[in-house]
């Protein structure tokens, strides 16, 4: 058992990272794109809300982008950004954007007209109304989108292994094969899954903290938001 555990965490030298180092790298490669995607998605979503005619074409473009497989995206980008982390992160940012724009648009649009009218009646300007009323009410929808984007981003980083070992924990998969060390495959899969579950749980926590007005019980129909997150 001791031997197995030792082998399990014994990362081959060619990866040039400890296990913890790979975890850090993986998180960075997965989360920075989601953050970038969110920053881009907020203004794009706002434009789609302001100009309704814009939303269908934006949805169309994002659907096409989402249909491009990550591996193909990576390989095509090598031409421009080389075999670097950036090549992995750009597609992941695009996928995040694609998930987040509709989440934000639907979330902000779900704010009832009377709520907006009430805010206006209270003297809120459009900017203040957006940041203090619309955006906070849309938080559950945005977090739902973030959860999907983050979990899939964490999973997809591994594919970066194929473009010159830019896949962080995914690099273990290739080394497991060339050195005949299956325990490294287990390590990669288990660690990646745990990271995804942890980050997902953190996002749920963030939602609970950001939306203190939401019922936080777990009984019955109140479960619905959590389920909807998972459904995307």
């Amino acid at each position: 058992m001791n031997g197995f555990l030792h082998d399990f965490f014994d990362i081959p030298s060619d990866l040039q990272h400890s296990w913890i180092g790979l975890v850090g790298l993986h998180l960075r490669e997965a989360l920075l794109p989601v953050a970038a995607g969110l920053l881009l998605a907020l203004p794009i979503a706002q434009l789609c809300i302001r100009f309704r005619w814009l939303y269908p074409p934006v949805l169309g473009i994002t659907t096409v982008l989402y249909a491009v497989p990550s591996l193909a995206f990576f390989v095509v980008l090598i031409n421009y950004t080389g075999q670097t982390e950036l090549t992995v992160m750009i597609p992941l940012a695009v996928y995040s954007l694609v998930v987040l724009v509709p989440a934000i648009v639907d979330g902000v649009r779900s704010v009832p007209q009377e709520t907006l009218s009430a805010a206006t009646a209270m003297g809120f300007g459009p900017l203040r109304r957006y940041f203090q009323v619309q955006l906070p009410i849309a938080v559950p929808a945005i977090i739902a989108g973030l959860r999907v984007a983050t979990v899939s981003s964490i999973s997809l980083v591994s594919v970066g292994m194929l473009i010159g070992n830019q896949g962080a924990l995914g690099n273990l998969l290739h080394d497991a094969q060339i050195y005949n060390r299956p325990e490294l495959t287990w390590n990669s899969v288990i660690t990646t899954a745990l990271l995804a579950i942890l980050v997902d749980a953190l996002l749920v926590l963030v939602r609970v903290l950001l939306t203190p007005w939401m019922p936080s019980g777990t009984a019955g129909r109140k479960q619905a938001p959590a389920l909807k997150d998972a459904a995307r």
Partner: peptide, 16 residues
């Protein structure tokens, strides 16, 4: 179940 399923990395699972 859904959260666990989504958390499993497809590529890693394939190699495994």
């Amino acid at each position: 179940v859904a959260t666990a399923g989504r958390a499993l990395p497809s590529f890693g699972l394939l190699v495994l």
